[in-house]
Design a protein around this nucleic acid. Sequence first.
DNA 1: CGAGAGCCAT
Length: 578
Amino acid sequence: MHTSQRLISPPSFLSIVSHHPSFLLLSTRLFSTQQDVYRANLNITALSRAGNINAARQLFDKTSPKDIVTWNSMLTAYWQNGFIEHSKTLFHSMPIKNIVSWNSIITACIQNNNLNDAFSYFTSMPEKNAASYNAMMSGFVKMGCVEEAQKLFEEMPRPNVVSYTVMIDGYAKMEGGIRRARALFDAMPNRNEVSWTVMISGLVENELYEEAWELFVRMPLKNVVACTAMITGFCKQGKINEAWNLFQQIPCRDCASWNIMITGYAQNGRGEEALNLFSQMVRTGMQPDDLTFVSIFTACASLALLDEGRQTNALVIKHGFHSDLSVSNALVTMYSKCGEIVNSELAFGQISHPDIVSWNTIIAGFAQHGLYDRARYYFDHMVAVGVTPDGITFLNLLSACCRAGKVDETMNIFNLMVHNYGIPPRSEHYSCIVDVMSRAGQLKRACKVIQEMPFKADSSIWGALLVGCNIHSNVKLGELAAGSILNLDPYNAGAYVMMSNIYAAAGKWKDVNRVRYLMKEQGVKKQTAYSWMQIENKLHCFVGGDPSHPNIDDIHDALRRITLHMKVKGNPEEEAIS
DNA sequence: CGAGAGCCAT
């Protein structure tokens, strides 16, 4: 009978253990509970975030039964560790999928810059939520397809704060799109701190400083990311004191905020302070990262601080960043800017997989040291190992060749760039050509290049011509070049000096004096004592040669000032004449 | 378990 059978049957295992005090402990070991799966899922994610993808996979295999979150965690673990194909395989073998699985695989493709795959997953998913649209939109924005993103934004049912934020980011990064970004920001129903940060950062990027600051002041809770964006803006404008003030007000400084402050000092010629800040950073217990070392090397490079650069090189090894590509590239730059081309080359040689920046850096180093043959050797070498040169590679090679005075060779390189590599030449490339031709005395040919360029010449191109006119004493073309520069930039002290040189060489003393007055009238802000000295030295020569000059008093006055200045100041370049 | 932000070498 049923009941009797039950009565005589031995007590089940469960009925015993469930009354035992250690029941809970046993049950977690022997049975999978809801909590176990939950814990396993969290651990898969934690292991993945620690970069331990194998352990994550082992735990995934051990977890049984798996729920949808287990599958999704493993899916995400794979692509976040760079195993995109594993993600795809797993996705297609999943017994059940939910929206999160689809969203994750879309994000995986986008991280891998595969917009086509992402979009085909997006279109074939059974139903979409806001995150699906947001992921796809951010993919389009990342690849610069803002219009495509906008289409999705308009057709999605209920855009949320992230959707708006993605669009604002897209518009802000688009050429001339900052007003649209701002309009959308003003129109959005509610904002969170990321929306504020994206908008402020976009304004900073577009160099609308004042507007960025207005918004920053209005931002309810200023987080460290927004502060860092704002500090970046200050540093770009050279307002290093404002940057420092804001930096000091950040309650919880992180590595990135220290980095930008160090970079800010380095790029504004205050390398000592950058290095001091670095030791302060280390003292506060903040761990430097790769970008910190890049900033420090930049500081050392800009001030040619070789000893500090060497010390930092040792620190890099101590902190284990010696195989980091950006750090290594910055190290190569540091040595070459400190005049240590041999060490620069050695540092380059230690890079296991040099990228385009590494190659460009070493070529630039040889260019700066006037060693065209070595630059060319590395150029040929990079092409031989299959790295495609870009516009910067060619600029470096052109400037090396130009400094060597090889006109035909420079033109060959230029043509190679345009015709074989299809790289559209920029103003800097033309500048090299005009420079080499002008120095070689081929002034007419240089003028022809300027005339036939696809865009208007800037002051550096005219400057290259002007240098040639100075060397080869061509007053007429010199006037054209100097005049063009001063049309673009009336405060260009170099143009005044160079032109006065040309006039002086031609014995046109009245014109030298005219240039001098012109410079004074314009109120040239950057009129360094050195610029004045050069012009007035020319007039000094003249005083000796022809004392019947009508403005002799001015010249004597000028000479008195020059003499005084040289007595008081050791280095006349340092101080502007008031 | 899914979507959005700052600092980077030529």
